[in-house]
Amino acid sequence: MSTASANPDWVLPDRGRVGMFSLFASESAIFVIFIVAYLFYAGKSVSGPTASVLHLPVLLTVCLLSSSWTIHRAVAGLRRGEVGSFAGFWVATIVLGAVFLGGTALEWRHLIHDEGLTIRTNLFGTTYYSLVGLHAFHVTVGLIALATVALLTAGGHVKREHAARVDLLGLYWHFVDVVWIAVFLVVYVVGR
């Protein structure tokens, strides 16, 4: 053992990224349990509407998936120090996320009012609203975080040196997108 001097060869992974990926592992485990419950109960409802009342949310899916591209462009812009480009793509991400969330709200309104499906109607209602709702909750948390950064940007507080931190938020947003692909496949493609 000796004392450390400047040690340029000693590079370890960024703690923010390690923490974020650990969080994804945990979140994935949570989603897996909800997906298992959804598949386990698929077609087992004893009464009420079933998965056949669902419509493919293609437009919403396109919105959410393209928001991954916009947030990627936003962070790339900040890395180059182009705060204007960052702000533009960042706001576009928020708009796309909000459209997705609004679309989910309309879909649920249709299911509740027109189809009479609530979380207590039957097993399909319970598992559907829980799984899609858990994902929507994650989108909501992401939107709040994105909006906070947008407000900070408007106040002129976000600069090039914050690119690595903003990138962590981008990682989270990508993760929420990937989870949506899984939820979409399970609920709207396989389970319908």
């Binding site: 650990s22 592992a25 945990s26 979140e27 485990a29 949570i30 989603f31 897996v32 349990i33 909800f34 419950a37 979380i119 207590r120 039957n122 097993l123 319970t126 829980s130 858990l134």
Partner: peptide, 23 residues
């Protein structure tokens, strides 16, 4: 991370059952 997260998910489901009338 791999063990407590499933418990967390199961507890959320139990809460849905008990408070929101889930099944």
């Amino acid at each position: 991370i791999l063990a407590v997260s499933p418990l967390t998910a199961a507890q959320i489901m139990l809460l849905v059952d008990r408070y929101l009338g889930g099944h």
